[in-house]
Write a protein that binds this DNA or RNA. Structure first.
Length: 436
RNA sequence: GGUACUAUGGCAGAGUGGUAAUGCAGCGGACUCGAAAUCCGCCGAACCCGUGUAGAGCGGGCGCCGGGGUUCGAAUCCCCGUAGUACCUCCA
């Protein structure tokens, strides 16, 4: 949620910044017009209420002294009715303001490249391991025998998309045997790394209520992509960002505890509405996938430092896994709804020879904190909104995909990255095994 | 899931229709070399509106878990929720 006082005071500037985010400028005019109506109504009704409070006090006084107050009471009946009408009007205007404001995305930080879409994103840096699987060069031309991760996964018998579709539907799968083990190794490794960096590990609810979904910005605008629990006002989380960030909703945090850092593994559920036909094969785009998430609560002045650190935490995982990647800064037109600034980390997928998003790290500044009222007291003892950040660290399924493609060998086996071997009982290779 | 009870400021805790006691904590001051104790004063709400020196100050509204209702007037009465506790039921 944006600060309505800022929108009123710096309307022209705000309008330009909203345009950068792809919002029609009339949206702001509309909001401010309704806001003006609302404030006019408030002034009317509050002066009536003030009057009522005075008269009512006199009535009370009269009653105590056994005097007649029927005239004042009769008069107040009318005022009362008028107040009721205006109150109802105001409630309606409140709702309109809320709804219009709730649909406006966050404003971009001044560093963010301005542009309408992903073409305006800017690469920040690129990384590749010195030793890459069994080959020296990561980005050297991909040998022709390199297969897509889903082909290797099925051939090794560790990914079962067919039965996933049979039991659940398209975009669901079973991990089988070493596949399930590898998935578990990957997320345990990730959680251990983040814990070393000072993140507190959490296991969260994976079903949340509507106000939590509103708090992080998924609702009201993006309901069509959410898995709602039938018959209940609850939703399967699209990311652990939702329960982790809402953990402190409505609370005032001790300033000395900031920044607070959480990490959690959770399944994530997405309908992927509008993605029909895209990435239909493999682990890239599923209705359910595991993700290790990082969330931070910070003071405003430290949030951009913490954004860099969180991005580095995501990169650290890829570096230790020896997977090539690059980091890009998303443009104003490509960022998510709640973000003020976002870095995407994209991992190299050799079979398609493209970088695919494996992590997205965002500073939402006070956008989410205003929605869910998370504050701290500054040195003057005044309540201030915290800044919240979130980032994947990393998407687990996509990490598996990247490992299968980057670490495959010509004989059809896959080398298990060294840092994961201790999590796999020392096993060094994945090879075809027959499972029942 | 059922029944009963409960929900008031940072904490504790009064208030059963007349507009939120009191204690602790906090802040300021007096006393003191300083501190403690004591005394005096202030202070309670993620809020909203007006004015404005523009998150100061002042005035008003609101405010007793949330939302409705009754009433001139609701913390108080009624209804619907939510959460907690106890017992029951059911379980992992």
């Amino acid at each position: 949620m944006l600060d309505i006082k800022y929108l009123r005071k710096s309307t022209q500037e705000a309008k330009q910044r909203l345009v950068d985010r792809g919002v029609a400028p009339e949206k702001l005019d509309e909001l401010l017009a309704v806001d003006q109506q609302r404030r006019d109504t408030i002034q009317k009704v509050e002066s009536l209420k003030s009057q009522r409070n005075d008269v009512t006090e006199k009535i009370a006084f009269a009653k105590r002294h056994k005097e007649d107050a029927s005239e004042a009471i009769a008069q107040m009946q009318e005022v009362g009715a008028e107040i009721k009408t205006l109150d109802a009007q105001q409630a309606q205007l409140d709702e309109q303001v809320q709804s219009l404001a709730a649909h406006l995305p966050n404003l971009a930080h001044e560093d963010v490249p301005v542009g309408p879409d992903e073409a305006a994103n800017v690469e920040q840096r690129k990384w590749e391991p010195a030793v890459y699987g069994h080959r020296p060069q990561a980005l050297a031309p991909t040998p022709e025998w390199v297969k897509a991760h889903y082909d290797i996964g099925e051939r090794l018998g560790i990914l079962d998309f067919e039965r996933g579709a049979k039991v659940s539907g398209a975009r669901f799968l079973y991990y089988v045997g070493d596949g399930a083990r590898l998935e578990r190794a990957v997320y345990n490794f990730m959680l251990d790394e983040h814990r070393k960096e000072g993140y507190t590990e959490m296991i969260t609810p994976i079903v949340v209520n509507d106000s939590a979904m509103f708090g992080t910005g998924q609702y009201p605008k993006f309901q069509e992509d959410a898995y709602r629990v039938a018959g209940l006002d609850q939703t399967y989380i699209p990311t652990a960002e939702v329960p982790l960030t809402n953990y402190y909703s409505g609370e005032t945090l001790p300033a000395e505890d900031l920044p607070i850092k959480f990490t959690a593994l959770s399944p994530s559920f997405r309908k992927e509405a509008g993605a029909a036909g895209k990435d239909t094969r493999g682990l890239i785009r599923l209705h359910q996938f595991n993700k290790v998430e990082m969330v931070k609560f910070t003071k405003p002045e430290q949030s951009y430092d913490e954004l860099e650190k969180m991005t580095a935490n995501a990169e650290n995982i890829l570096q230790k896994l020896g997977l090539p990647y690059h980091v890009i800064a998303l443009s104003t037109g490509d960022m998510g709804f709640s973000a003020a600034k976002t870095y995407d980390v994209e991992v190299w997928m050799p079979q398609q020879q493209v970088y695919r998003e494996i992590s997205s790290v965002s500073n939402t500044e006070d956008f989410q904190a205003r929605r869910m009222h998370i504050t701290y007291r500054d040195e003057q003892g005044k309540l201030q909104l915290v800044h919240t950040l979130n980032g994947s660290g990393l998407a687990v399924g996509r990490t598996i995909a990247a490992i299968l493609e980057n670490y495959q060998n010509e004989d059809g086996t896959v080398t298990i990255p060294e840092v994961l071997q201790p999590y796999m009982g020392g096993q060094e290779y994945l090879q075809a095994t027959r499972h029942i």
